[in-house]
Amino acid sequence: MLSLSRTSWLEILAEAWRVYPLEACGLLLADRSADGALIDESGQADRPIQRFVPLKNAANSSRVFQLDPMGYMKVERMADDDGSEVVGVVHSHTHTAAYPSATDVREATMPLVPPTWHWVIVSLAWGSPELRSFRVQGQKSDWLLAWGSDSEYKKGSEYKKGTDKWGIAEEQVWLR
């Protein structure tokens, strides 16, 4: 479950409109020491989002996003210093609904994208903005440890496509 303050929601929305018609992106941080007090239907315990940090879309596009890598590193550094942790990524859809695109699913399940991250999408396609959050399902980390070569990785992607094992599923959003 994603627990988001109304302030963070407004900040996400403001950033999405600020860079419109380009896709906006950024990271979500939670307090490292906070309890995973929120338990959703699936029994997953999540810490509330402490803040949203907007990042430059390095792809500079209205169709795709790439987190500015140096900005990402700076957020990691900041998190080390203030005791928080990156727990999710946000991006906007300018012309489609707030559901993951095929590219989103592929990228979310890439090696080294943390499998526990919230994938939050905000859509500006229609009059009122909508926000949804998704999580990668399945034992991605086991698979990550097992992959050894690009050819195996490709096989992994195909495998993923053909089964439910590596899917991405919507989670509840609680605006607090």
């Binding site: 790439q66 990402y72 890439m110």
Partner: peptide, 10 residues
């Protein structure tokens, strides 16, 4: 030196 994965989507 900083090493980090690309995080991207569509």
């Amino acid at each position: 030196v900083a090493i980090l994965p690309a995080v991207a989507g569509g």
